[in-house]
């Protein structure tokens, strides 16, 4: 049982976060609060993706000692001593020694695009406030019906 909890604990945390965001999107009346909920939801997904790429004992997906001098990898060096020996002994790189780069790539772009689209959402909320004088959903609905 304890093993199960430890192995799946991260997913459960993301689901809790995701549900907090979903609840805010459904139940909150204020559009800004809805947007905050959406952002929490988004963050949960990002954490989920990054944790999919994690590997036990692996280091960041940057090959250290690149080229001749290896002057670029000093920061990574401290992290990846075990990695380095494993990789050099085998001749080629050991996939288990580096975390999966693909989720990082996907989430890297998703974060920036998320910020940009959040900006669009905020602009729409500003426009709604211009038109109806409120950002509370029930008030806006009432004024649309008028």
């Amino acid at each position: 049982m304890l093993d199960l909890i430890i192995a799946k604990f991260n997913y459960w945390v993301y689901i809790v976060l995701m549900m907090i965001g979903l609840y805010a999107m459904i139940a909150k009346n204020n559009y800004i609060k809805k947007l905050i909920g959406m952002t929490i939801f988004q963050t949960a997904i990002m954490l989920f993706y990054v944790s999919i790429g994690a590997k036990q004992g692996a280091t960041i997906p940057i090959i250290d000692h690149h080229g001749d001098g290896g002057d670029h990898g000093e920061a990574a060096e401290a992290v990846g001593h075990a990695v380095e020996t494993a990789a050099h002994a085998a001749g080629s790189l050991d996939p288990d020694a580096y975390v999966n780069p693909l989720p990082h790539v996907l989430m890297l772009t998703a974060i920036v695009v998320g910020v940009a689209t959040l900006g669009v959402a905020m602009a729409v909320v500003q426009k709604i406030h211009d038109q109806y004088g409120s950002i509370e959903e029930d008030e806006v609905l009432k004024r649309i019906k008028l």
Binding site: Y11, I52, G53, Q56, A58, N100, L102
Partner: peptide, 13 residues
């Protein structure tokens, strides 16, 4: 969590 042989970590990555 952290399984190096999970499906997401196996093929393309």
């Amino acid at each position: 969590w952290g399984d190096p042989h999970s499906p997401a970590n196996s093929y393309l990555s």
